[in-house]
């Protein structure tokens, strides 16, 4: 018997005026998968995850999460149901120390509901979560204001905030962008650990080499349409994908 998908996207379409940003995209996501969404700039990757997470309203199509239709639900309700996301451009609460940035998600309705109304010692939970994503305890970096943290730590902070919501699906929008090779190399094991714990993840990425190391499946978008879906190696051998990335030889 086949597994019921955790997420089903059916014929999702979004038009901005005359521009078809996403055109009839469909795919499924099973529990424990890491789905990579790739494609050239402007191919509709971010719009697709905006549609799934409720930040943009769909023109047509459906998003089914755990058997429930969540199409066009407001973003806060989708988060409460269990889909958390990060953004390409990080926006921490700059004047707060890194660990205090965790307090707001740790006070969120979803965490409250999961904890049965009891929050516990949030500072301790925040520091543990930050350590999990690479804020070393001995250098006290978790106590520094977000405004002085380098991009690598800010991306880790984004990841920690998403983890703190204990989501069923985490959507990571270009988590690796703006990071050095060494920084990416240190974040990849964190993602691998999350997968080992059974987390389900969608990643939009331009850093394909690193993504292909961890993704169980990849879909490729071009001009708002899905042009390939499968394991990374097979997908990248598709002529259509090569054409989308490298251009036509004609």
């Amino acid at each position: 018997m086949s597994e019921t998908p955790l997420l089903e996207v059916k014929g999702l379409t979004k038009s901005f005026g005359g521009v078809q940003a996403v055109n009839g995209i469909s795919f499924t996501l099973n529990k424990g998968d890491l789905l990579g969404i790739i494609g050239p700039n402007g191919s509709g990757k971010t719009t697709t995850v905006n549609l799934i997470s409720g930040f943009v309203k769909a023109t047509s199509g459906r998003v089914i999460f755990k058997g429930r239709d969540i199409t066009n639900m407001p973003p806060y309700k989708i988060v409460r149901l269990g889909i958390a996301r990060t953004f390409q451009m990080v926006k921490p609460f700059y004047q707060l120390p890194a660990f205090k940035n965790m307090i707001i998600p740790l006070y969120s309705p979803r965490v409250k509901a999961l904890a049965g109304g009891k929050y516990g010692d949030r500072d301790a939970v925040a520091l543990d979560l930050l350590e999990e994503v690479g804020f070393e305890r001995d250098n006290q970096v978790a106590y520094k204001a977000a405004s002085v943290l380098p991009q690598g730590y800010l991306k880790r902070l984004e990841l920690a905030k998403a983890i703190s919501l204990q989501p069923d699906i985490m959507i990571l929008d270009e988590l690796f962008s703006g990071l050095s090779l060494a920084e990416v190399a240190s974040i990849v094991p964190i993602i691998e650990k999350l997968l080992l714990e059974g987390k389900t993840i969608i990643m939009i990425e331009h850093r394909l080499k690193e993504l292909f190391r961890i993704a169980s499946r990849v879909i490729v978008l071009n001009f708002g349409e899905k042009i390939a879906d499968g394991v990374a190696k097979e997908v990248m051998e598709s002529d259509e994908v090569k054409k989308a990335y490298l251009g036509s030889e004609e």
């Binding site: 997470s53 930040f55 407001p74 953004f87 921490p92 609460f93 707001i104 969120s108 309705p109």
Partner: peptide, 22 residues
């Protein structure tokens, strides 16, 4: 928690929405 939600929305509405705040 409502006060923290106030601060969250005040600093960045989009980020606050990602934490499930209405």
């Amino acid at each position: 928690s409502v006060g923290l939600a106030f601060r969250g929305i005040a600093q960045d509405e989009r980020t606050a929405l990602t934490f499930g705040m209405d």
